[in-house]
Design a protein around this nucleic acid. Structure first.
Lengths: 157, 157
DNA sequence: TCTATTTTAAGAATATAATTCTGTTTAATT
DNA sequence: AATTAAACAGAATTATATTCTTAAAATAGA
């Protein structure tokens, strides 16, 4: 059974989503508690799925992936089996980091991270446009990024 | 001075961006090395900025933020000072997790995470549309998400 | 309100992993 | 070939995670 998050849980989550390498001691100190309850709460949050995983966030640009592109796509056919196939194909492309089925002016919104404009063009030509039933495709090339985070504001939950 | 990443560095990064709680021992074992060089390499990768931070990835839905929306925006004025002001305002909204300046059919692409449709509407009405010089605003409501990750494929770098 | 039950926390003890240190090997440079 | 710098192995140390036991607080039922 799922329990509800109290204020302490929320604070722990807020800290860990900002820096997951913090020691339980430092969290405990900040909350005026000892390590054991903090430790147990964290384990519970992991076990119950509030915390999905712990990851290192890399600097894409530094690693050589300098370009982020969003691609809006409409499909010509909308059968269930085809949609599933489409998503499956998309997931196999290593450039793609996000794939959302959306309502609005597109059927899908993709986010991809690539080396540069050439790599983007290669993706479009030799991968994306090979998929069947492709309708309208519209790209938004990122010029600069003002904010990009995973961190969600927990003051409102 | 920046050094280039060798294959060992790349493998370490790949492991840590998948699970940053792995022990240096387990990484060392997988790479057939001992803990000291792994430890030193990780510290170097942190220091030189290849690793930006370590974070806990939360389950947004479980926490009560069930809706992801992308918003494409065009502005009516494009003076530099206004663009900066716009980005600054946007960054203050806790709902926004991403804000990209883009080229294409929009000036900006926002990604936001909110409780539900009502919260989304509230954001639009009482926050977004209060900003001056706003032109076209187009929302893409996420119906389902096939893939959503930070993890980039390092086999190509 | 009292008692039983469950939950939560504290504090000490232990296990595990991170970090440091020293000496050796390997690779690069001249 | 000699010299220097970088990278690694292995042991030693330190810090942190994890476990355990007991006490306090909260909750539910009579």
């Amino acid at each position: 059974m799922a329990h509800t998050l109290d204020h302490i849980d929320t604070q722990i989550l807020a800290m860990l989503q900002n820096n997951s390498n913090r020691t339980t001691k430092s969290i405990a100190d900040e909350l005026g508690m000892t390590t054991s309850p903090i430790f147990e709460r964290i384990k519970k949050l992991e076990k119950e799925g509030y915390i999905k995983k712990y990851v290192a966030v890399l600097d894409n640009k530094k690693i050589g992936l300098k370009l982020t592109v969003f691609i809006g796509i409409t499909l010509q056919g909308h059968t269930r089996s085809y949609l599933e196939k489409f998503v499956k194909e998309i997931n196999n492309f290593p450039e793609i980091v996000e794939c959302h089925r959306v309502s609005g002016n597109f059927d899908y919104l993709l986010k991809l991270v690539v080396e540069d404009i050439e790599a983007y063009e290669t993706f479009i030509i030799s991968k994306l446009t090979l998929l069947p039933y492709l309708g309208n495709v519209q790209s938004l090339i990122t010029l600069s990024t003002g904010k990009e985070t995973n961190e969600i504001d927990l003051s409102r939950v």
